[in-house]
Design a protein around this nucleic acid. Sequence first.
DNA 1: TTTATAAATTGACATATGTTAATAAATTAT
DNA 2: ATAATTTATTAACATATGTCAATTTATAAA
Lengths: 194, 194
Amino acid sequence: MHIEKSEVSEIFKGLELKDHEIEFIKTVLHKKNYSKGALIIKNGVQVDQTFGVKSGCLRTYHVDKVGKEHTLQFAIKGWWITDYTSFFLKSKAIMNLEVIQDAVVYQLSFQDREELFKKIPTLESFIRTRLENSYAAFQKRVLGNLSKTAKERYLDFISTYPNIEKRVKNYHIASYLGITTESLSRIRRELTQI
Amino acid sequence: MHIEKSEVSEIFKGLELKDHEIEFIKTVLHKKNYSKGALIIKNGVQVDQTFGVKSGCLRTYHVDKVGKEHTLQFAIKGWWITDYTSFFLKSKAIMNLEVIQDAVVYQLSFQDREELFKKIPTLESFIRTRLENSYAAFQKRVLGNLSKTAKERYLDFISTYPNIEKRVKNYHIASYLGITTESLSRIRRELTQI
DNA sequence: TTTATAAATTGACATATGTTAATAAATTAT
DNA sequence: ATAATTTATTAACATATGTCAATTTATAAA
């Protein structure tokens, strides 16, 4: 699928890119359509692509040894998602990447990403800064999981990610919070009864 | 405290640095001694330094609203640690950074770090790659917290970080795993009884 | 060494969340 | 619109982990 110059600007909003840089970026990004239910990454494979969401909604989840799903991340417009344990650590994927609402994504390979950073150093800084922010957000999540009750984590989730809450099922949220769908149901009842 | 050229090479092991680059790095790193018990960062302050461990052991922990401690990270030789939520997101610290064994650390400010990346692009790539690996490790930790029992998390911890286990108290480990010291004690008993 | 302090363990009981099974509500397909 | 399917809710009971209090063991100070 063809990528417009305006789309590249949108993806790297805040960054001043020269025309030839935008042209190069267009050669490494591959725009694709995915339908709800598609599994873009399957547990066990070697992952060498990362996916930027233009529209729709994705999630990564891990299936544990008793078959339960645990959602690690959601991604909507503007977010990048993949099995980062495989993508960064060069190991086999421990997650599935699932399309939970019909999506258009920009696909970028590990090698092309490195190439991009080499050719456009300001882009490397831009991405590094985003990664730093995501890293800090993950640290907050770990602390939240350690220190908060399920109800508190749910309230945090819906206030931090209202746009995600609208788009995903309650059982997706439950598996993100680390509780069962029944527990989430009880929590929601308590919240409405007050 | 004076920093040797060999120390800089050690900190950025794997990276080829020119002499003038090493000299510049020496001007932005500040080596300091800290004694056991010192609180390098206190909850509530604005953090603009990160700390690389030369020797000893540090940890970051959060104190929740009922006064319980939750350990986010440990750091021994070679690791960098700070309240990254404050350092990266420019918000107030939500953690304390505590010295749990007498330590020698290299201190680096946010501004100097950015300066370093600007002057030495290979160093920015080097640090970015390390951050990518840490990010992936954190994702694994979140998944582990969601999908594993306390006993499994404990076994993972001691096999992944045997050098940390040796240096910290059991109550530190418990607070890292998200359980009480009593629960950890029961887990340890079960493990020895088999 | 002996004493004081800190850390770890143990047991009885409490509680948040999980499990199972049934039902209701919402969404999608016909 | 109606039926089929998926999702969410509810209730009774189970379980992992927490709480509290006492005791033992390890470490540090005198």
